[in-house]
């Protein structure tokens, strides 16, 4: 059995990796919203901005839940649903980008 206080600080490093990932997602969402907003105030543009912000909120909520779990000394494993959700958000941002390309 490894000691409970692991000298590698694995849970904390993993929590910080999630934080870096949410920051990357935030940058991409700003660019996605900017791309959509280039169409002015058309309904499609507003929908694009709303979708981007919505995807960021889903990404942040999922990451936040996982980061909360990682606060314990012996955290539970990442579940497939969480991994799939953040992957789906990333793919959705790419699809949104392909659709909004001028």
């Amino acid at each position: 059995m490894p000691p409970v206080q692991d000298p590698g600080l694995q849970p904390e490093r993993t929590r910080l990796a999630w934080r870096r990932t949410t920051l990357s997602a935030a940058v991409v969402v700003v660019l996605a919203a900017r791309e959509a907003a280039r169409r002015g105030a058309a309904p499609a543009a507003l929908l694009g901005v709303a979708l981007s912000v919505g995807l960021l909120l889903v990404f942040l909520a999922t990451a936040q839940r996982r980061m909360h779990q990682l606060g314990s000394a012996r955290p539970a494993d990442l579940v497939p649903a969480t991994a799939l959700l953040v992957t789906a958000c990333t793919v959705a941002l790419a699809v949104l980008g392909a659709v909004t390309l001028p």
Binding site: L31, R34, A83, G97
Partner: peptide
């Protein structure tokens, strides 16, 4: 996994850029 996901996000961000 998260490092690869950030790579994916960087590629998507690069596409927008």
């Amino acid at each position: 996994f998260l490092a690869w996901l950030r790579t994916a996000l960087a590629l998507v961000g690069g596409g927008f850029a």
